Amino acid sequence: MTSVIETRQDLYLRLFEHIWNPERIGLPVSLPPAHNGPDKPATRARQTTTRRRPAASGRRTDVAKMIGAQVLKAGTRLVLTYRSTDHWATVDEDGGIILAATGGTPYGRADEAGAVARGTKTCQGMNEWHVEDEKGERISLRTLRDRAMEAGVL
């Protein structure tokens, strides 16, 4: 539960920093003073933690973790079959999923990309997106993740 709370806190802090960024809204930027008082060091509004950040984008999804652990590589093609139609996508370097049909903005989660590809409200993306191995056999992202966890890679 602690990691969930820390993740949520980090997200809120980054949202606040973006929303109230003085440069973004056209205000002059002033640097904080070096000291808060005669013998007090400057305090920081945000504490730095020692936990590892997964990808440059800050994504903490399973796909981003698999990219970070090199279980998946950027450029890996994914396929989701829905109602006898294959929907193709590519994984980017931050673990985002870019649908071949749109070729644009990466989706942050496999569930979101799957729902868009299927045209439905929800999708079990980790179960429905697959990679193809050398033999042409399809392996779900969930199976790939579970194997990596069992092997101690994730």
Rank of each mutant, 00 (worst) to 15 (best):
L80K: 03
T102S: 13
P28A: 09
L13E: 10
R77E: 11
L13W: 00
L31E: 15
A117Y: 00
A110T: 02
D86Y: 02
A34H: 11
M66Q: 03
R118L: 02
R52P: 02
Y82K: 06
T105R: 15
L72D: 04
T2F: 05
V63C: 05
E93S: 12
G96V: 03
G95S: 08
K65A: 08
P22A: 10
D62I: 04
F16S: 06
P41E: 13
G114N: 09
A110K: 00
R60L: 14
L31M: 14
V79E: 07
S57N: 12
R83W: 01
S84F: 09
I19G: 02
T90Y: 06
P38M: 13
E112Y: 09
R44Q: 12
S30W: 08
K73N: 12
L13A: 06
A69E: 10
T61E: 12
L80R: 02
Y12L: 15
D62K: 05
A113S: 09
K121L: 08
V79I: 11
I98R: 02
G114V: 04
I19M: 08
K40R: 14
N36V: 10
D92I: 08
H87P: 00
L78H: 03
G104F: 08
E23S: 11
P33K: 12
G104S: 09
G68R: 14
